[in-house]
Design a protein around this nucleic acid. Structure first.
Lengths: 215, 215, 215, 215
DNA sequence: CATGAATGAGCTTTCATTCAT
DNA sequence: CATGAATGAAAGCTCATTCAT
């Protein structure tokens, strides 16, 4: 009856436009980080790569570091999502397969943008400690604790779950990262096998000492 | 005896003077890296901290990156030496003790300058890839291969030594670094125990099937 | 009576709305000038403080300087009004009392917004020379000329009224401003007494030589 | 006997070179302040006007404000010196002549760079309060107190010297400044006469009220 | 060899102003 | 009229590097 009080919906309402702009900036930031490293990724270059003026950057981010942090945060979210997507599909698989799959998922996720991974790991100073990368580690750690708690039957009884999770998460993460960045002469499947073994054996309850066996 | 034209024999011949100068610069560089991070460690600051003029830096190093690289190289050498010193004392110990000791040695060595470790790991871009840190990893890797070869009896037969060494070295190194930088709520001895377990179990041969034991 | 198409008579016709808007902007401008000085009083800040968009400022003022000028003009008008109000009440008082009161009125008027007075005097460049502050001086000057003309009997005969007025006005104004801004260790009443003396004595005729008195 | 330990004096030893450079910068800063006002006197412009690179400015001054402050300080010193030079020549003159001469000296000193005086007074925000301009006022104030103390015989007995000096100094200074900046239609000599009268009459001990004379 | 003043490109960031919506 | 995103020139300042002394 009365006219619509809200104007006709535009193709791009404010919030979407803003989100698109932020994304363009983050894309540009990521590009520049890859191409020039953190120091070389000047705000002017980022603005140019995003096709906007230098001043416009500052309508979306308070300073350069915030851009870099947001780029890394977005990357963390992508990592997180990619890993979660694949892992959640195999929740029903037996434990060792599940572990192997998780590691494979992480490795593949990291391998989507190896050049950016390198830029982040080797060129970018650790900015505000509240990055989502740490949250990612944290979250994986908690999942690991949960996993260990559920499977406590196959874990050696003297292990502290928190400690074990802390070690496992960082071990797996770092080896996967280094595998991609350093490209050692190790076959991909072999590598995944080995890292799976390292993870599983770490907490494996070993049978009573062999010397009992051969007295 | 002393020649007449030269007033007195210099305590420091050219090469030694030069070496001493380089060391002062490296000390200054290390200080500035710790105090201000890579970006904040300007050549002017380094020169001032070394008590020389900015121009003189370039008599000893071609550019800023070379200074940082040299600082890190020297640190790698110190690490290397500290670890080697302690490890070589226990060459005769039984394998598990030896491994544990090596890990403890590394952890202690990294803990000598935790602030510099943080500066290098979190603030300093990876410079020329020829750093001695990689050489350190390389060397430890070779030692590990040797160790595995010697102890091949207690290693699961399907393992490739090179692969295993690559994984072990990076795992141990990274976990030790993160332990120092992140200070997780894990007791130091416990941590060393756990990392030792992870290393040893990784290659531990799954005992011949239990049914062999109880025929 | 009321037309049908317009839902209800607006309380505020166009011109009044506009005037109200201008006042809000001037309030905001004054605030920002006080809080941040001229350079720190950015148009964005003023717009925000006025609760409008940056673009809307330019509906009412052609540029930033015009805002500052208008703020100062309004202040001049307020000063003017405050002084005039008090002075006009005492037009019947004897001359010295009248002068004293005028000075006191000015001092009080300046002391209503000492922080803004400081911002204007110490932080704000002199903008377009047509400011009302000069008009204020001009007007007071004319009043002074009139006053002198009326009281020419007690003024030394060699004085040019225009010159005397020019000097008196600037002297009184500046000393009052400095008194407020610098807060010297002078009692307020004493200060007013002194400035009154300075003004009155300036034009006081040197009495006919004493020897005329005692013949 | 022994060789001179200090090397042969160069045409321009370090300190002199430095002083010359500082002077060039101050000249350039003064020019730019005059030509473009404080806001328009950018560091780049100053550097260009001084014929040096922008970076070189910062070897002599920590920031833009320091340059402006130094320019004003130097000007204050020049003012101070010019006034002092002329005043000290007439120390033996009778009081009223001495006062008149001092005022004339100040007026002439201010009139040497009227454009810069305008730039300072109308365009430049008050920077660090410790400027030499205030010291100049302070110093003149103290001299005035001394003068009044010496001549206390011809000063009305109820005057506080500190208060009187505060008022006199600011009155004289401001009127002279305004005279130069506003160029009122007042003859220079007349102006000096008037200001002298204002100063002298302010403290003049007036004879017993005239009404005693004509009962 | 040592010096340190000088360089100058380039950095991050601001802000008065405009204009499509 | 109001909006506020976008602009882009320009600001203040830094710093790795050079070179005349």
């Amino acid at each position: 009856m009365a006219q619509k009080s809200t104007p006709a919906p535009r193709r791009m309402p404010r919030q979407d436009r803003s989100r698109a702009m932020v994304d363009r900036i983050l894309d540009a930031g990521q590009e520049m980080l890859i191409a020039h490293g953190y120091d070389g990724a000047s705000t002017n270059r980022i603005a140019a790569a995003a096709g906007i003026s230098p001043g416009s950057l500052y309508q979306y981010f308070p300073n350069k570091d915030a851009i870099a942090a947001a780029v890394i945060d977005r990357y963390s979210d992508q990592l997180s999502a990619r890993v979660a997507a694949r892992v959640s599909e195999r929740l029903d698989q037996p434990a060792p397969h599940y572990v192997r799959e998780s590691i494979a998922a992480l490795l593949d996720a990291l391998d989507v943008h190896p050049d950016f991974l390198r830029a982040v790991m080797e060129q970018t100073p650790r900015l505000g400690s509240g990055s989502k990368l740490l949250a990612f580690e944290q979250r994986i750690g908690e999942l690991t604790v949960a996993y260990l708690t559920i499977n406590k039957g196959v874990v050696r009884p003297d292990a502290t779950f928190e400690t074990a999770a802390w070690m496992l998460v960082r071990m797996v993460e770092h080896l996967c990262v280094r595998y991609i960045l350093d490209q050692p002469a190790i076959d991909r499947d072999t590598f995944i096998d080995e890292i799976t073994v390292m993870a599983l054996n770490y907490l494996r309850p070993w049978p009573t000492p062999p010397e009992d066996c051969f007295p």
